[in-house]
Nucleic acid binder design. Structure first.
Lengths: 199, 199, 199, 199
DNA sequence: GATGAATGAGGATTCATTCAT
DNA sequence: AATGAATGAATCCTCATTCAT
């Protein structure tokens, strides 16, 4: 209901540094101890700031996570936009491969962090801005699929995203680190899904 | 570390009824309010028993969830065994379709419950018995794949399971109810994954 | 206030056996886990009876301890009476030595049990019958002291009892097992106390 | 296992006041209702702080008691050191009298509190710092005894301490308030114990 | 802006005791 | 007589959040 936004925009450098430290602390705790270990006192302590300062920038515990998720999804959108632009003129298979690879970029950059955050995301109500980002990611994928003549593009976009996230999750949990190989396997499934129109 | 098991075996009928009521209450709460709403007082109240009774059988909140997960994964194993036995002599495609469909049976029986439980499962440490069940599910899938000459069967089993669970999760969350259609889409991806050996 | 007594006199052999098993279980738990570990469910389980049966004989947890303490103090009174009768005609020193030794008989018979029980006794309100036993023990000591011309015999009896119990407690806690040596040391103190009238 | 220590050092004056209020409240409750009445909610309420504040400084109920005991034993050590320094050159008897009197100083300052705390101490596992304080008290007594040529000084120190504590306990419980008289009686026993080498 | 002490509702868990079978 | 399932008050403890300094 109530939008979860920043309570106050950090203008000064110090303030922005505190904000970042808070998010990094939250990420570290999330990775090490899971969602159950994430509490504002711990975050503040690890971040090296006081609880008061934390609440100066984030109105609630969820707001921290929400911002981290927004950050991750925003980066993912950028990754996908870059990939889409690079696929100008490619065929479906090449396009899918590029998009899938781009979908894993945030995992590549920080496997443990991305995994922990996606896991936490599942248990959280989605805020408006994140919903917007996800909608834009969906629209991007839908657009690409439609350009290649895929019917039921919305359904396909949902399926492919879910498949990608599910397989990535499992792979990272299993300790895999070769994201190219993973992207290859996901792409095979995605292409199979898209090309077997005659199901 | 410590196995999460029943604290005391219910011997009398009344006791078994209490146990069941507790699990059903937990399921209901999980569906309606998510993992965050699941607390022992609420479970006991919804179940119509006292907290004391709850703790007579479950040593902790997690133990209730653990038992529910065990139940679900046990049923899933049975579903898959049934499906595997029915695929005697079928080709890979037919086999995959049957196994994927069987993988969704627990969602079919109780979509909301299965989804909530799988979501909760991700945030919980796995107990030994559940790990065993999952290993047996994995072994079953691996066995089927190997019988059909699939290389890297273990990797494939992990990928297909993750893909199935991810897509099912997303579909149920999106409100889909047609599990045959869903099974079809998952099967297309799975078959694509398995047949494009030349990737 | 309300006298803590047996709820029902056990008449049959089986009943008496249950009563004894309960007290023995309580003793074992007290020794192994301290007063904090003593709870009726645990006692019943160790005793091999149901809680219901326990409450058939003991109206409360305290009642079990109270009976155990009464038993111990009753035995102690008997030990002291025997010792007093044996000191007929002895001088003060010999008398003191015998009485001190007798005061340790219950520790001799069950060092760990006696220590645990005395420790528990300190934290419990005293029931009437135990108060009576202690009064009779006090009177016995006072009588002996008076017969030997000790002034302020009541005061002395209190002091000697406290000294004996304190030193015995510390010795058993320290792992001593030679109760003759201990009795000797206590006797030296006691005799010193009694003979230095000119302090 | 885990040391029972302060969870967080109180830095501000307000915090130190809260800490003190908590310990004073605990002492009051201990005196009035015994160890059984000591619970964190009651302590917080009597102290005029919230439970949360209590747990900010003490990780558990036991930690409060542990700190109180440390305080008491620390004061006792100081009392004994002062007394030992004052006995420079005195003979054994005078020395014993001074040390015994010093051993009662904490009872003198707060008879009810000291008695309740010593009673509670018996039922508690000893933390490392308290063990250290007790060891130093023991070493002090042993040193004094050795300087006066007492054989088996360690044994004697244990016996004299136990005797002193036992007699003091009983005296305070009996309502005695004349600690000089009490010290005199204890000293008689102690001197008797020490001088009757010919046991 | 920052601090950290304080709050207290919320939730987990235990255990003495009762009572239907 | 015995059983053991059920009760629920009592207690422990956490943690999101506020606010005086």
């Amino acid at each position: 209901m109530t939008e979860i936004i920043l309570r106050k925009q950090p203008r000064q450098a110090r303030a922005r540094a505190s904000c970042a430290a808070i998010r990094e602390a939250a990420a570290r705790i999330l990775v090490q101890g899971g969602a159950g270990a994430l509490n504002t006192n711990a975050v503040a302590e690890v971040a090296g700031v006081s609880v008061g300062t934390l609440y100066q920038y984030y109105p609630s515990k969820e707001a921290i996570l929400a911002e981290m998720i927004r950050e991750m999804r925003g980066a993912m959108l950028a990754d996908l936009e870059r990939a889409r632009d690079a696929t100008e003129g490619s065929d479906l298979r090449a396009t899918v491969r590029l998009l899938v690879a781009a979908s894993l970029d945030h995992h590549r950059r920080d496997p443990a962090g991305a995994e922990a955050l996606e896991r936490a995301e599942a248990a959280l109500p989605m805020d408006g801005e994140t919903a917007d980002l996800k909608a834009r990611i969906g629209a991007l994928v839908i657009g690409v699929l439609q350009r290649h003549g895929i019917a039921a593009a919305a359904q396909a976009a949902q399926d492919l995203s879910a498949m990608t996230q599910g397989m990535a999750q499992a792979a990272v949990t299993a300790g895999e680190a070769d994201f190219d190989a993973l992207a290859g396997r996901i792409s095979r499934a995605a292409i199979g899904y898209l090309e077997s129109g005659c199901n």
